[in-house]
């Protein structure tokens, strides 16, 4: 059985102008099946929700679906080879793959700090890509925490 959630817009003619689109609300375990009536880009009515979250979600999902995006990029000189990054805000859903591809070739060097911007305004979205963890340069770890110089072999 191939299960697919019926959430891709599936216009059904009600009258000439209004089309109904179906989305699955992710606000709580109930998973309401939302029916959004819209005329072009204007939402006329949202049905099928059991709370206000569903109403809001249905409108947002129809007009401008966005998702938080995380990925990793290469980092040189740290104890691990990838540093995790995320978009500072959710990005348009249809740009998820494009943003990850834009970051693929990027290489940065340790040390980095949490919140540091690695790419500003990625793909013209107006959204920055930020580092989500601190990574000291290899050999700096002991230095930072104990106040002692790193051993020469690691430096």
């Amino acid at each position: 059985m191939n299960h697919r959630h019926d959430r891709q817009p599936q216009p059904q003619a009600i009258d000439e102008d209004v089309a109904t689109h179906v989305y699955l609300c992710t606000g709580c375990p109930l998973g309401c099946r939302l029916e959004v009536d819209a005329v072009d880009d204007e939402v006329v009515e949202v049905r099928g929700f059991n709370c206000r979250k569903g109403d809001r979600y249905g409108r947002q999902e129809h007009l401008d679906p966005r998702r938080p995006l995380s990925t990793t990029i290469w980092i040189e000189g740290a104890a691990i080879r990838r540093v995790p990054v995320r978009t500072a805000e959710p990005v348009p859903r249809d740009q998820l793959v494009a943003v990850v591809e834009a970051l693929r070739g990027l290489r940065i060097a340790a040390p980095v700090k949490r919140g540091e911007v690695v790419v500003a305004d990625v793909l013209g979205t107006g959204i920055d890509v930020i580092v989500t963890r601190e990574l000291p340069a290899v050999g700096q770890r002991d230095h930072l925490t104990t106040g002692q110089d790193p051993p020469a072999s690691e430096a």
Partner: peptide
């Protein structure tokens, strides 16, 4: 549920 929507449906990955 939000992972089903955001991880599979968004990227057209089938769930059997």
């Amino acid at each position: 549920m939000r992972n089903v929507v955001q991880c599979l449906d968004d990227l057209d990955i089938p769930l059997h």
